[in-house]
Simulated assay, not measured.
Amino acid sequence: MPIENIPEIYIKDKTASPDLFVYDFKMTSDVVKSKVNLGMNMFSFLQVGKKQVHFAGTSVAVNKDQSLLLKKGNWLWTELLDVDTSYYCKLFFFSEKILKEFLEKHGLNNEVVKDGTPYFIIKNDAYINSYLNSLSTISNAPAIFMETLLSVKFEELMLYFLQKYGRKFELYLHSLIVIENSSFKKIVESKIHSNLKLEEIAFLCNMSLSTFKRQFIKEYRESPGKWLQNKRLQNAKKTLEQGICKPSEIYLEYGYNNLSNFSIAFKNKFGISPKEA
C-alpha cells in the first residue's frame, strides 16, 4: 500500500511550504484504508459521505453531521460514499508554527500537554456551514491576498471552537504542540542495522521525506543518505573483521540490493574489498 504524503500531494507548487492550506477533496468511489502521512494538523469538514480513521491505539468514525480535527502523524483512513452520491470534504491544514502564534496571541501559551487523543470530534452546525461557504468564496481571491485571508479565517474558526467547546478544546490544541525530544535520533540510530529506505525511516518518524531530510540535516549536519551509508559500511566492516560472516551473507542487511554495489561502496570507503577486510 503506497504512502500518501498529505498535504504535499495536494500542493501544486512543490517548492511551497504554506502554514495554512485549504483543499476541496472529492471522489466518486470508496477508498478503503489509505496509508497516510499527515504532515500538518488538519480540520476535515465532512459534507457528504463517511470517514473512519485508525490510529495507533484507537479509531474514530464520523458522518456528514460531524467533522474532525486530526493531529499530524501516520494514520490509516477509510472514506466511504453515501448511497448513489459522491464523497466531499473540505480540508483545512495548519502548521504548528501558526498554532503557536495563535495560542501566544490569545494568552494560551503557558501550558504543556504531553499526550492526548489524536482527534477531536466537531459537531457540524449552522456556523460551520456558513464558515465553509465563506472559505469557498475566498478561494477565488487573488493569491497575493490569500495568505492574509486564510490567517483571518483560521483565527475566526479557532476562537469559535474555543467559545463552543471551552477548556476541552484548549487542552486539545496544546496536545498538538510536539515536544522536542530525542525520539528522532533514537529512531534513526536504531535503523542503522536495517535495510530500510529513507522513505520508510521517515514514515516511522511521522514525517514526509522532505521534512525528514530537513530535520536530519539539522540534527546531524549531513545528508541522511551519506550518513546512513557511512554508518552501515563501518558496521559491515566490523562484522567482516570478526571473520564470522562472508560479504555475500551480510550485504542485504546493510541496505544494499546486491553484492556488487556493496563491494564497490565498501572499496570506495576503505580502499579494500569486503573479502580483504
Rank of each mutant, 00 (worst) to 15 (best):
V83Q: 11
R221N: 13
P7H: 12
Y256G: 03
S182W: 00
L81R: 07
M146A: 03
L240V: 03
E200D: 14
T28H: 11
W227R: 04
F93K: 04
D65N: 15
P224L: 07
P247D: 00
E249D: 05
V36D: 08
S130P: 01
W227D: 01
L159I: 12
S183R: 14
I121R: 08
S44E: 06
S44R: 09
N230H: 09
M40D: 07
K72G: 04
E199F: 05
T239F: 02
K275Q: 08
P118E: 05
L252K: 15
S17H: 15
N257R: 15
K238T: 10
N109M: 05
E276A: 07
I250M: 02
N235K: 14
D115V: 10
D24L: 13
F92K: 07
I264S: 04
K71Y: 06
H54Q: 14
G107S: 12
M207G: 04
Y160Q: 11
Y172I: 13
N235C: 07
S59I: 01
Y160P: 02
L162S: 00
L209F: 10
L198F: 00
F93Q: 04
I192E: 00
I138P: 10
T117H: 08
V36G: 00
N110H: 11
S130L: 12
D65E: 15
K50Q: 10
V112P: 01
G116S: 01
W75Q: 11
L149Y: 11
I128C: 02
F21L: 09
L70V: 14
Q52R: 15
F92N: 03
Y10I: 02
R232F: 02
M27G: 11
K168P: 00
G271W: 06
S273D: 07
Q234C: 05
V62M: 03
G243D: 01
K12I: 12
I3V: 15
V152R: 13
V22G: 01
K14M: 09
A126C: 08
E276D: 07
W77T: 02
Y87A: 03
F43I: 07
K50I: 01
L38W: 08
N5Y: 14
P118A: 08
S86K: 05
A277I: 00
E200W: 05
D125C: 12
S130R: 09
H193W: 14
S190G: 08
F212L: 11
I250K: 00
